[in-house]
């Protein structure tokens, strides 16, 4: 029963990683850049939810929606102000800018919200599920997290496959000039991608903090890095890859913590990544990217 319980917790943590990884992978797919500030958008989302709930006494669900709106706008603004002017710059310049944005957001949070640790109370009010005569307990947060991940994945796949905007995203990911020749507004499509990724980051952040309730300006960086790892693990640019990478990473982390060493669990996660990349450099579902000459 213990193993099953660890496994479910792993899937739940992995669901959070998967939702964050979507943001990395979609932005990478379309803008060919690693948005290192993505993790910090999560942190901002958590603060917004926290302040709305504890400060203003707003209903948790409404607080989450406010947080999604704020993060979506933040994502669009970051892209417009920091990344768009660098559309034709070298990848290194873009990467350094992204790291700069990350520090900017952390310091802004430090200034606005203070350095003290906030204790985040779960947004989930669902009671825990007791199975097998109480031998296996699944918390409400766990259930909601896994369900949210499934709903988001299905919705996103349908959006991309079935809507014009989704097809435009695929077209822009593959060939910006050709997409423009079809009449696709490339800048608006990139904006939309950042908006979706950041909105999802808000949801992931709230779920993460509901399970791990300490909130500081640096809360976003570790899940951010892990989700980035998950995206690379699954094959960066691939949406199913983000799901698989995220879930596997969550399971490895929780099982590693339970059976090997709680101090080493992060090291185990990154060791697995290194092994995977040695065997398959493009990640599990990644395709060889042919650079155009």
């Amino acid at each position: 029963m213990n193993f099953l319980s660890y496994l479910i917790n792993g899937i739940s943590l992995g669901s959070v990683y998967a939702i964050i990884a979507l943001g990395y992978t979609m932005v990478y797919g379309i803008a060919k850049m690693l948005n290192f500030a993505h993790g910090d958008v999560i942190m901002i989302g958590c603060y917004v939810t926290f302040l709305a709930m504890s400060g203003q006494g707003i209903h948790p669900l409404a607080a989450v929606i406010i947080s999604i709106v704020v993060c979506t706008l933040l994502g669009i603004a970051v892209e417009k102000i920091a990344y768009k002017p660098l559309r034709r710059a070298t990848p290194l310049a873009v990467l350094i800018t992204a790291i700069g944005v990350s520090y900017f957001l952390q310091n802004a949070a430090l200034l606005l919200f203070g350095a003290d640790t906030k204790s985040f109370s779960s947004v989930v009010t669902l009671p825990a599920l007791k199975l097998a005569d109480g031998a296996l307990t699944i918390s409400g947060t766990t259930i909601v997290t896994i369900a949210a991940c499934i709903v988001i994945m299905v919705a996103l796949m349908l959006f991309i496959k079935k809507t014009k905007a989704g097809q435009a995203m695929l077209a822009v990911s593959e060939d910006k000039d050709a997409a423009q020749l079809m009449g696709v507004n490339v800048n608006a499509t990139i904006s939309l991608t950042f908006a979706i990724g950041s909105g999802l980051a808000a949801i992931a952040g709230v779920l993460f903090c509901s399970a791990y309730p300490t909130l500081t300006p640096y809360t976003g960086s570790m899940p951010g890095i892990k989700a980035f790892t998950a995206a690379v693990f699954g094959g960066i640019g691939s949406i199913p890859g983000a799901l698989i990478g995220g879930i596997l990473l969550g399971i490895i982390e929780i099982l590693g913590r339970a059976y090997i060493s709680s101090q080493l669990s992060d090291a185990i996660v990154f060791a697995v990544l290194i092994v995977v990349l040695l065997v398959k450099p493009t990640g599990i579902l990644g395709k060889q990217i042919h650079e155009k000459v």
């Binding site: 593959e174 050709a178 020749l181």
Partner: peptide
């Protein structure tokens, strides 16, 4: 119709 076709290979 661009030079080199530029069809969306993944679609």
């Amino acid at each position: 119709v661009p030079e080199g076709r530029r069809v969306f290979a993944e679609l």
